[in-house]
């Protein structure tokens, strides 16, 4: 019994900016349902007394001195840009026409 619904898949797709087709929503809903069911078992042993590990090798205080290093040129920075103008990356309107 999984709580993966087509609406949830659509919401997750919107959060992750993927414009899924309807067929993809359908197949993902069922696939994710199965996957989630099988991975939910982590909860069985994840008790309160167990600390979480986010880094496999524990290190701390890794930092660098505040010294300027090599930078990219503007040409390098823009070299892969799908669109640019005036030394900047160009994107279409951020707000839709109706707003």
């Amino acid at each position: 019994m999984s709580d993966i619904t087509p609406e949830l898949v659509r919401h997750l797709a919107s959060l992750s900016r993927i414009d899924l087709h309807d067929e993809e929503v359908t197949s993902l809903t069922s696939e994710l349902g199965q996957i989630v069911e099988s991975i939910a078992k982590v909860q069985e042993v994840a008790t309160d007394d167990v600390v979480a590990t986010s880094h496999p090798i524990p290190l701390q205080n890794v930092s660098r001195p505040d010294e300027v290093g090599e930078t990219l040129t503007q040409e390098q920075a823009l070299s892969n840009a799908p669109d640019s103008a005036d030394g900047r990356f160009r994107v279409p309107a951020i707000l839709g026409g109706e707003q």
Partner: peptide, 18 residues
Amino acid sequence: REAGFGPEVKRRIILGTY
């Protein structure tokens, strides 16, 4: 992202977002 990612990538992104 719809056009550029394959099905497995989309699957895992959606799963991870969840």
